[in-house]
Simulated scan of single mutants.
Amino acid sequence: MQKDYEKQYHDVETDHWWFKSRRDYLLDLIKNAPKDSKILDIGCSSGVFLKDAEKLGFAINNLYGIDISEQAIKNSKANGIKNSYVMDGQDITLTQKFDIIIASDCLEHLEHDSKALANWKTLLNKGGTMYVFVPAFMSLWSYHDDINMHYRRYTKAELKARFKEQNLKVVKSGYWNFFLFTPVFLFRKVSGKLKKDKSAVSDIAMGKSFVNTAMLNLLLLENKMLRLFSFPFGISTFCIAKKTEE
């Protein structure tokens, strides 16, 4: 991630509708897990998700985060996540094993995604669960992907295939941010927000407060709907998988 963009990311990650609504969905997915579960957030940034997990009742001493960015880990420690470390997501060297591993918009940053998943599997306890969110569809590729230094976007089938390669049992997969897919797709095509357009504005600009609130409420509604059924496409795709063997 480019340095100027990273600063902007840290400035908005707590309150921006995109990050806040995704955290809401992830927290809903793990809320019934035993509160002594050991959790690893890969690409933890400033530790905002882990702080939210603590508010849900998970023990702070069991919450771990890693990030490639020194500034992110500095922020994370300042936010009270003492078990946070600067590490490469393709080669995490923690000696602990975890009951829950979270990776939100991380895998697409790693050149060797299969190697990364193999590494993450070794960190997961038998019976543990991995939750991975990634950007969906190469047709949505834009300048946003360039400045984030993405290697790829995924379809649901492609992401599931990566998990099956590692003999991880997929228990749920789907698309997220369905409601905004069509306007985002059209906007990126019509406005020329493709990778050749180096003057484009970042997708994570905070915008007006009423817009942020409206977008957040829309995705919170979608999160509730995802409890009941899956959407056929979306801006992101996700996979939830269990480790069933050592």
Rank of each mutant, 00 (worst) to 15 (best):
H109G: 06
K169W: 04
I235H: 03
I92C: 07
K115P: 07
G174E: 11
N32H: 13
M215Q: 04
D113P: 01
I240D: 03
E245I: 06
F185W: 11
A136G: 01
A116W: 07
L220D: 00
A116G: 04
N75F: 13
I81K: 07
T129W: 02
E158T: 12
V12E: 05
C44G: 00
L123V: 00
M87F: 04
S114D: 01
K51Y: 03
G207V: 14
Q8I: 08
D146N: 15
G89A: 13
W18F: 15
F49Y: 11
R23S: 12
L50A: 10
K172H: 10
T213I: 03
V48A: 08
S139H: 10
S139Q: 13
L123E: 05
I204Q: 03
F133V: 01
G127P: 11
K74F: 05
P232N: 13
D36H: 14
L140I: 11
S37K: 12
L26F: 13
L50F: 06
M1F: 15
L50W: 06
I73L: 07
I60R: 12
L40F: 13
I102L: 01
T93S: 13
K97T: 15
N212P: 03
L63F: 08
S142N: 02
V86S: 12
Y131C: 09
D203N: 14
F133P: 01
N62V: 01
A241H: 06
A136C: 02
E245C: 00
D145Y: 10
K164S: 13
A53N: 00
K55C: 00
V132E: 11
I68F: 15
E111Y: 01
S84Y: 12
L124R: 03
F133Q: 00
F238T: 09
E246W: 07
N148E: 09
W18D: 12
G80Y: 08
W18G: 01
E111T: 00
R188Y: 12
F181D: 09
A53S: 09
K242M: 09
Y151D: 05
K3D: 08
G47W: 03
N217E: 10
E222T: 06
K126L: 05
K164W: 12
T129L: 06
H144T: 14
K97N: 07
A200G: 14
R188S: 04
F19R: 08
Q2W: 06
M225Y: 02
A78Q: 08
L27R: 13
C44V: 02
R227A: 02
L226V: 06
F19M: 09
K243G: 03
T122D: 01
F181P: 08
G43M: 12
G89E: 15
A72Y: 13
K160D: 15
W141Y: 12
E222F: 04
D11Y: 02
L220E: 05
L107H: 01
V211I: 10
N32Y: 04
A161E: 15
D197P: 05
Y131G: 06
K208T: 14
L168E: 02
F185C: 10
L117R: 00
G207K: 14
S142A: 03
F187L: 15
Y64W: 10
Q8H: 07
D197H: 15
D52N: 02
I68H: 07
S199L: 11
R153T: 14
G57M: 00
V190F: 09
A241G: 07
A59L: 10
L140R: 10
K77I: 07
T182H: 07
N125R: 06
F238Y: 14
I39P: 08
E54S: 14
L107C: 02
K156R: 13
